Computed example of a mutant assay.
Amino acid sequence: MSDSASSVIRMATVSDAPAWSDFARRVFLDTFGPNNDPDDLAEYMRDAFTHEQQRGELEDPQNRCMLAECEGVLAGYTLLRAGAYGASDESTDERLLQATRPLEIQRFYVDHAFHGRGIAQQMMAEALAHAVSLHSDVVWLGVWEHNPRAIRFYEKYGFFKAGAHRFRLGRDVQRDYVMMRPL
């Protein structure tokens, strides 16, 4: 595919659960596989990316999943979740803790084959527009501290480090930065 391939962002439906699940599993493994123990990855993925898990996420009224398609091929997705921010492991910016209508970007992935085509930028624009439509006062996310590419991307959109929390990948307890962007 050429770099000028057109892409479309659309809301996922329950019928998308199997394809989304398979895609999410693959991009998670592509993204984190080289830097993590295969047994920890397998343990995490056993529950995180089943067809039933994604179906449940799509049926949850607090969630919205946006799929990015490029010439009919699934190229990326973002899972958004409305609701309060829980306690963090480290000092957290008070603006996040006091948010009345926070929106979490729970997952944000673009297939490596589609990097550099503007899809992530389109997805972020749609995610932020959705937050505005919900009258959210803060958008937040967790990002692995060892993922500098993602951290730089989020910083370009006005997100800043507001704390940290733990993320369990199998037996491995990792540290994610909590990043936020007031709206």
Results as ranks from 00 to 15, higher is better:
Asp93Thr: 00
Ser7Lys: 08
Met123Cys: 03
Ser7Asp: 02
Ala84His: 13
Ala125Phe: 08
His135Ala: 15
Ala17Arg: 04
Gly72Gln: 05
Met123Leu: 14
Asn63Glu: 10
Ala150Tyr: 05
Pro61Trp: 14
Phe159Tyr: 10
Arg101Val: 12
Glu94Phe: 07
Asp172Ile: 02
Asp111Leu: 01
Glu90Phe: 13
Val173Lys: 00
Leu134Asn: 10
Asn147Pro: 10
His135Pro: 04
Gly56Pro: 02
Asp93Ala: 05
Ala131Glu: 04
Ile105Asn: 07
Ser21Met: 05
Val143Met: 07
Arg101Gln: 15
Gln54His: 13
Arg81Asp: 13
Gln106Phe: 02
His130Ile: 04
Asp93His: 02
Ala84Cys: 01
Tyr177Ser: 07
His51Glu: 06
Asn147Trp: 01
Ser136His: 11
Tyr109Gly: 00
Gly142Leu: 13
Phe23Ile: 02
Asn63Val: 07
Arg81Ile: 15
Glu71His: 02
Ala24Phe: 03
Ala87Trp: 03
Gly118Val: 02
Glu145Ile: 13
Arg25Gln: 10
His146Pro: 00
Arg25Ser: 11
Arg107Tyr: 14
Ala75Phe: 01
Phe160Ser: 14
Asp93Glu: 08
Ala87Val: 05
Pro61Lys: 06
Ser133Ala: 13
Arg152Lys: 12
Arg166Asp: 15
His135Met: 10
Phe23His: 12
Arg46Trp: 13
Leu97Trp: 07
Gly170Arg: 01
Arg26Cys: 12
Leu80Val: 10
Asn147Glu: 01
Arg168Met: 11
Asp93Gly: 08
Asp111Pro: 06
Ala162Phe: 13
Ala113Pro: 02
Tyr44Lys: 00
Leu74Phe: 09
Glu52Trp: 00
His130Ala: 06
Phe159Leu: 07
Val173Pro: 08
Gly76Ala: 06
Thr50Lys: 06
Arg81Gly: 11
Asp172Ala: 15
Ser21Trp: 03
Val139Thr: 15
Ala12Val: 14
Ala131Leu: 09
Leu80Phe: 14
Met180Asn: 04
Glu69Asn: 12
Gln98Asp: 14
Gly83Lys: 09
Ala125Lys: 15
Pro61Val: 10
Phe28Asp: 08
Glu104Ala: 11
Val27Glu: 05
Gln121Cys: 01
Ser6Cys: 10
Asn63Ile: 06
Thr50Gln: 00
